[in-house]
């Protein structure tokens, strides 16, 4: 049961390390967005501090979209995806593994470098732990929802635009609760309600999304 998952995770991570430049693209993109913000809205620290939670989250969301197009497509094209169904492991477990490796590759670097982005936008230090926590709970949801959208659009040939249209309505709640929590923390209020709701979203996504993603992939390899 576990060995196909382990093999897939090891393969995905090894590929990510060997294609180092490509794997760093989402992170570079995130910082490109963060750098553009002060140039676009002006460098006033007060304004930047107030929009920092939203901007960092929007940038993280956009960055997570980058790698989605290629999440399942190469495996579909070379026939590996079909092996998920005929092989020993459960397809749903392999889907979860693939989504987990997507999060490790695109989500974790964003969390690690979030303090730098926060500093660039003058986010108050008191809000930084909440920002990190919100990213820790929220970015897996982005990977899960993005993976679902990627599986749904797999059979189409103009996937990428459609993919972002599908992702956008599904991640609205994540964005609302995450930025709401960080904004509350910046004003010295408790963010526990927001973080609780965000965790509820994560639990909902973890339980339902792999099933829907597996069903969508199955339809696409038929």
């Amino acid at each position: 049961m576990l060995s196909p998952m382990k093999a897939l995770l090891r393969r995905d991570l090894r590929l990510a390390v060997r294609h180092g430049g490509e794997s760093l693209m989402p992170l570079i993109f995130l910082f490109a967005v963060i750098i553009l913000v002060p140039l676009g809205v002006g460098p006033g620290p007060n304004l930047l501090a107030s929009i920092a939670p939203g901007m960092i989250w929007v940038a993280a969301l956009l960055a997570s979209l980058l790698a989605l197009e290629q999440l399942f497509r190469p495996d579909l094209e070379d026939g590996t995806l079909e092996q998920w169904w005929v092989g020993a492991g459960s397809p749903a477990a392999l889907v979860v593994t693939r989504l987990f490796s997507h999060w490790l590759i695109t989500g974790v670097p964003v969390i690690v470098f979030a303090p730098l982005a926060a500093e660039m936008l003058y986010l108050p230090d008191s809000a930084l732990p909440t920002l990190m926590l919100s990213l820790l709970i929220g970015t897996p949801v982005l990977s899960l929802v993005g993976g679902l959208a990627s599986a749904l659009t797999l059979g189409t040939n103009r996937g990428s635009v459609l993919l972002s249209i599908l992702v956008f309505p599904m991640v609205v709640p994540v964005l609302i609760f995450a930025t709401g929590g960080v904004a509350a923390a910046a004003e010295g209020l408790s963010a526990s309600a927001h973080m609780g709701l965000l965790t509820a979203l994560l639990i909902l996504a973890v339980t339902l999304v792999p099933l829907a993603t597996t069903a969508a992939l199955r339809l696409n390899i038929e």
Binding site: L152, T153, G155, T156, N157, R158, G159, L162, I165, L166, A212, A215, A216, L219, N220, E222
Partner: peptide
């Protein structure tokens, strides 16, 4: 949009149902 993006209309309908 998802339904319209598939060439195979039946497959598109099933994926969009998910």
């Amino acid at each position: 949009g998802l339904y319209a993006a598939f060439e195979d209309r039946r497959k598109g309908a099933r994926v969009a149902c998910i």
